[in-house]
Nucleic acid binder design. Structure first.
Lengths: 216, 216
DNA sequence: GACGCTCTGTTGCTTACACAACAAATCGAG
DNA sequence: CTCGATTTGTTGTGTAAGCAACAGAGCGTC
């Protein structure tokens, strides 16, 4: 069983987790997820192999965890300083998803049919969580939803996720994509007009971006 | 009492020792040895303060240990690949001492009357150890010593140490100094002629170095 | 002097990690 | 298929590290 090392406050726990994540990250640069063993991870992290199992169920759980934290980190970097505007917060979320896909395409190109599905399912689930939280936090700022919260969250997350998945970075930048998706997501959740006006201004900028891109 | 953590093979031991040494090294760049506390070291190393005492008696013991290991490291880098020639080995030792002083002068200038004495006494002791080992290892390659091994080692180590201490890096390079000291040390321990000839060749190179230095 | 404060070592107890050994699963070679 | 080799999870036991609490030393302030 996993999670034998419980106390996240204990310096020893955070240290070995960091060691595991670091060596795992390094090894992923050198070989694929499937060919790499727990023993290798433990050896490079200079921890005992049994200790690994005290922290993660297996290497896939570790992989999910790494995906989660990098996504959360991107989100944290893109959240606006002020958290008082729900529209801005939602845009930051969509934006982060696009940036994540951009980064993913750079490090692990789409042809990879081995590890990418693991990332993708994780990203969709995480998007779902974030959207759900956002919806619950902002029910009073929104008009009537077209569907229950959980259904809405499901659809929004899949919409953003699917669009990001099918996106080939060539035609438009991650930023531009994010703006377009945000405008549509705003409608899905019934954001009021005033916030939507914000999106239209941004969309104007997108059209200029597209002109620039198509002019070559 | 110290040295509660005994087993040097245990990864936990080496890990925390490295953490302690690393944060200690960092802190020494920021403040003096005397103003810095065990608590600071432990905090930066993210270990418990009590754990520190399981490894080192106090911060001076840690300091001695750091000096020892950096000296040993310089020596390891300067030892010839082939350990079969006693003369070369001895020269490497002297050379390392000079390089150590060079490095010491760069990071911790002589006017410092607080920490330098701690380094110096340590270096002399360590030189003494190395010379003693060398003498024992090469008794059969040497002529009759002018004094017992321990006395000879004592005098050689003090001679090298004192010369290094009084050396102000301006007049000649560490390399040049090392060559001159080596030649004299070779006599002290009664190295045979053939090995001494080696030194003369090197000394020829030194004279060129000195010309370069004096030409500016 | 008395005080408050910080740093020093030390101690008893708890928890996380190391290690060896194990059975079971996986996999490639013959 | 069978064999050997490797990897996977899991377990019991010893030890290092975390933590809180302590008395004592040093040190500046009133």
């Amino acid at each position: 069983m996993a999670q034998g090392a419980g106390n996240r406050e204990d310096p020893r726990v955070t240290r070995t987790r960091e060691l595991i994540e670091q060596s795992f990250y390094e090894l992923l640069m050198e070989k694929s997820l499937h060919t790499l063993t727990i023993g290798e991870i433990a050896k490079r992290a200079r921890i005992n192999r049994a200790t690994f199992y005290a922290h993660f169920e297996d290497k896939y759980a570790l992989y999910r965890h790494v995906v989660r934290t990098t996504f959360a980190q991107i989100l944290a970097e893109n959240l606006p300083a002020q958290l008082d505007d729900p529209a801005l917060e939602l845009r930051a979320l969509v934006r982060s998803a696009c940036l994540f896909f951009e980064q993913l395409n750079a490090t692990c190109p789409p042809p990879d049919r081995q590890t990418r599905p693991l990332v993708e399912v994780q990203v969709q689930a995480q998007l779902n969580e974030y959207v759900t939280v956002w919806l619950h936090k902002n029910t009073n700022h929104l008009g009537a939803l077209a569907a229950p919260v959980d259904i809405t969250a499901e659809m929004v997350s899949w919409a953003v996720f699917g669009a990001g998945l099918d996106w080939d970075g060539g035609r438009q930048s991650a930023e531009a994509l994010a703006e377009q998706l945000s405008a549509l997501v705003a409608r899905m959740v019934g954001l009021p007009r005033e916030a939507a006006a914000d999106s239209l201004i941004e969309q104007g900028r997108n059209e200029r971006d597209e002109e620039l891109l198509s002019s070559r």
